[in-house]
């Protein structure tokens, strides 16, 4: 009897200790061109910027090389300085050899009369990845001066039963770690806007809704061009 009580007590104490929960946080590594153009003027130049995100969605330094499918239309240096040479179009490609493998990113560039930056907004749809109500459309706008606006559409609805719901921008929708915390969700129905300082339009791949008290993802939305 004493032995049973002893082992029972040990088991009870062990159950009260902090253990580990494993979260599957792997994502597909990605090489992303962060300042694309729609068109480049003949004779003008553009310094492309690119960022490699590793298998957990974190930015990682890696050596990138650039190439052009039509060097007579657009030339590009190995470090991404493109020059418009004559009217036409070319596919520009960035390649990286990272720890997790080789990855590439491409962008189609028109060379014409003017230099035109790519669109100033991206969009997507929020979806629930849990049993809690969470849905709606959104747009992510570059409003200049290093400022973004995440505009949640009028069809947005979220459960008010969730305690501690937060919204993030992230490159890994499996976890809030490494994500940019926008703020606690205080709007649960209808249109509203979050202002984000110091970020660029292509810095993140997903909007993430995460319940902090439960440390669990509630929903997400891929940010599409």
């Amino acid at each position: 009897m004493k032995t049973y009580l002893f082992f029972g007590l040990v088991a009870l104490l062990a159950a009260g200790c902090i253990g580990d929960d494993i979260v599957q946080d792997a994502v597909e590594p990605e090489l992303r061109i962060t300042n694309p153009l729609d068109s480049l003027a003949v004779g003008a130049t553009h310094q492309y910027e690119v960022q490699y995100f590793n298998g957990i969605g974190q930015p990682e330094l890696a050596e990138v090389t650039w190439s052009s499918s039509a060097p007579s239309i657009v030339s590009i240096t190995a470090d991404g300085l493109a020059t418009g040479l004559q009217e036409g179009s070319a596919l520009l490609r960035a390649d990286v050899n990272a720890r997790e493998g080789s990855f590439s990113a491409t962008v189609l560039l028109e060379v014409g009369a003017n230099t035109v930056a790519a669109g100033t907004f991206r969009e997507g749809m929020i979806r629930s990845t849990s049993s809690y109500l969470l849905e709606g459309d959104f747009e992510l706008h570059d409003v200049g001066a290093g400022r973004l606006e995440l505009r949640i559409a009028d069809n947005y609805r979220a459960s008010t039963s969730l305690p501690g719901l937060y919204v993030y921008l992230t490159n890994n929708p499996n976890t809030s770690v490494g994500a940019l915390e926008i703020g606690r969700v205080v709007d649960f129905n209808g249109a509203h806007t979050y202002v984000i300082e110091g970020s660029s339009l292509n810095d993140y791949s997903h909007v993430l809704y995460f319940c902090k008290p439960f440390n669990v993802k509630v929903g997400d939305g891929e940010i599409l061009d």
Binding site: C17, I18, G19, I22, S176
Partner: peptide
């Protein structure tokens, strides 16, 4: 009364992403 939460650990890196608390 004791209330605790587990560590949240990355399956990819083994790192503790969110430390448990008690």
């Amino acid at each position: 009364s004791r209330n605790y939460t587990n560590n949240v650990v990355s399956a990819s890196t083994g790192e503790v992403l969110i430390p448990g608390e008690a």
